[in-house]
Design a protein around this nucleic acid. Structure first.
Lengths: 244, 244
DNA sequence: CGTTGCCTTGACACAATTCAAGGAGCGTGG
DNA sequence: CCACGCTCCTTGAATTGTGTCAAGGCAACG
């Protein structure tokens, strides 16, 4: 299991090595890429707003962030979570204008990388573009699974499913401990991600607790019975990079 | 306005030309790419199933198809529509296993292109990969908008929004006529795409008709008042390639 | 000690699903 | 030629899930 924690060297190299074979020339090219200083954001900061033309690609090092979209009357939908090791806005490599906003959910640290830096590396090692974009393709697969959740899963199934998904994604970057992980978001965030009301999220989580599927206290989620939780969620891991 | 209709020459070249500047060398490289024979599928055929390892990338030439996912108990969610000019499974360029299924919604015609063919072209003209993947990035933006719809838009808003989105996407490939277009899908499909029951889709469409926003008869949709329909849908076109 | 953010609980209303049935159009076969 | 089955659209009625409204608790913090 590879780990991803703050403070290490060459974060970009480490992130990519999780998904591709890198030879010496690849590594050399990536090492020369300047990730700039480590930036920080507090727990409610917007890193980008819909309509922006961001100038950098962000690599999240610690903390959680999310993509979200909102409607004119204030309704908000979280369309994805960013975990440590994720790129926040690789898509600006293709389209300059953001179709969604990016917000930090917790205090967060990240690197800002200029697109030109990417260009330089990719001109040397074209196949690295594939590696980079593999992340974006994978994110699209997760979005599709969310569409299935929002469209067809019951609230109970949805929340169970999200808990399982986050477990595997965090596990892949070494951020689980046994069957538990830090879930540093509020129930309001879970509601916004699952297309539910806060009240109903609360009640549903209580149900999951009552059935002894999970515990959730002090922003820490413990999965008491992963198999049963996956069953409840109708979880099939084929959409994640690693199969489960 | 570029058009995309069956029977023309060099479909791939034409599709890409919509999104990138192609120089002579690009065109030459693309022309040598063998799209193979034109394949056909009938209105209910599956082009790929979740879990498959498809060997070809498909370029839809005529007819409609969709991505969908289903749950063990039969619930089904359409997570995207493919219109003429769309690639059905570009993502297998990165991941070999399908995380979703692809089904034809109408009789359809498409080209099958071997990934090796893509490789060959891209080795000559690396920046064409950007052009190709731009399509996939754009599809991801549409998926996000759908997440917003499923999570936060009312059924009425959802359906209105889909009607507007399809209008602009079809318009981009020359498949609209005035304010009307062929919508060759059943209300069941619309329900599966919008996370609603068939009955409720039917009633909602009747509402839209009653308010003189659209007509829909014989699989043909006419938008009677685009501005008002966009308002109902809370449509903001920033997520589509072309801004509206 | 008051304020703020977040979680929790109860009561109520209503939107959307489900169940059920019928009709129109169309192709097929007796 | 008509009967039948099939698909799709339509409508009504009953049920229920989920949102909304409202209120209170608790911990952290200034």
């Amino acid at each position: 299991m590879s780990t991803f924690t703050a403070g290490d060297e060459a974060p970009l190299l480490r992130v990519l090595a999780r998904y591709t074979e890198l030879d010496e020339d690849d590594r050399a090219a990536l090492m020369q890429l300047d990730t700039g200083p480590l930036c920080t954001a507090n727990g409610r900061a917007d890193l980008a707003r819909e309509g922006d033309h961001p100038t950098h690609i962000r690599l999240l090092v610690s903390g959680w962030a999310c993509r979200y979209k909102d409607l004119a009357d204030g309704r908000r939908q979280i369309v994805g979570f960013f975990l440590p090791g994720d790129f926040c806005d690789l898509n600006i490599y293709f389209t300059t204008r953001m179709d969604h906003s990016i917000g930090a959910l917790t205090a967060a640290r990240y690197y800002e990388i200029a697109p030109q830096q990417f260009h330089a590396v990719i001109e040397q090692r074209p196949h690295l573009l594939r590696a980079l974009l593999g992340r974006e393709i994978s994110a699209a697969a997760i979005q599709r699974e969310w569409l299935l959740s929002l469209g067809r899963r019951s609230p109970r199934e949805r929340i169970a499913h999200l808990f399982v998904e986050l477990f595997y994604r965090l596990d892949a970057v070494g951020l689980t401990h046994q069957n538990a992980y830090d879930l540093p978001v509020t129930q309001t965030h879970l509601a916004e991600a699952n297309g539910l009301s806060l009240v109903h999220v609360n009640r549903t989580i209580q149900d999951l607790r009552r059935e002894e599927l999970v515990t959730l206290t002090d922003r820490r989620l413990t999965i008491l019975d992963l198999d049963r939780l996956k069953q409840v969620a109708m979880f099939s891991g084929t959409y994640l990079d690693a199969a489960h």
